[in-house]
Design a protein around this nucleic acid. Sequence first.
DNA 1: GGATAAATCGACTATTTTATCCTTTTACTA
DNA 2: TAGTAAAAGGATAAAATAGTCGATTTATCC
Lengths: 145, 145
Amino acid sequence: MFSRTLEYALRAAVYLGGMYDRPMTAQQIADATAVPLSYLPKVLQQLVRANLVTGTRGLHGGYVLCRKPADMTILDVVNAIEPVCRIDHCPLNIPNHCDALCPLHRRIDALLASAQKTFQETTLAEILSEPGLPDNWHPQDTPKL
Amino acid sequence: MFSRTLEYALRAAVYLGGMYDRPMTAQQIADATAVPLSYLPKVLQQLVRANLVTGTRGLHGGYVLCRKPADMTILDVVNAIEPVCRIDHCPLNIPNHCDALCPLHRRIDALLASAQKTFQETTLAEILSEPGLPDNWHPQDTPKL
DNA sequence: GGATAAATCGACTATTTTATCCTTTTACTA
DNA sequence: TAGTAAAAGGATAAAATAGTCGATTTATCC
């Protein structure tokens, strides 16, 4: 139901949140998040273009989250990858229909709305604060240079 | 976020619910639901295989919903097309991780669970009882032969 | 039994998504 | 300034999804 690319983006975003302020290379992110290294840059690019992440080149370069994890929500990531496209008019192209949504699409749109709301309510910081993430997702053991 | 095929299947199922007990041809369903006629049989086949719909051939044949609309939920259709695949173990393949879900995937799975629940709570009959469906989705004007 | 109307089946095409690889650009270090 | 480490970009391949078409089977009517 969610695309693989979104999965990857979420993993990367949460991971970068945990490493906040330290540039992480695609290699490091791929290792930690088990995203194919050859595909990951494509995903990260989408986050860069959405201004969620900055990528800097060269030695000691890497990717850094643009905002503090507490200021970035799951929804931000979702919107960067595949925006929840709400249904604004009934897709049944029937004359004299479709001013508002039909009951079927009212339901579907309600679901999208609720998903969107849930996405918006969760920040990366919240996820990072819960126990259970892999140890190497937390920077305590790798002090910032 | 939902596949197009699922959209099509839902339209067809609700429509067949409205026409309960009257065999409707792929042609009729396609006309009413604006699903490509050439693709619709593929979709309906999936509903047939899932025992939600029966297809009978020949003159006066067509597709009929297997159960009363009140006894079929959105979830039944969803399960026939693309089952909500809940996350049962964290997909980060990291040693000593993954007994339970990590916080990220706990969230994602919670969303899937909530979607699943919503699907399950809505029957086709409920949708049909609400106002707003296209007129030709209701059989009153086309008496059963 | 023959004509017809319908679903079913299978092969094929097209589009989108996911993934890979190679080159180019940029930044840092010595 | 040369060397190196990184992201960025582009071309391509592979896989999944969506869509099309024609042949086959099955049921009904005359």
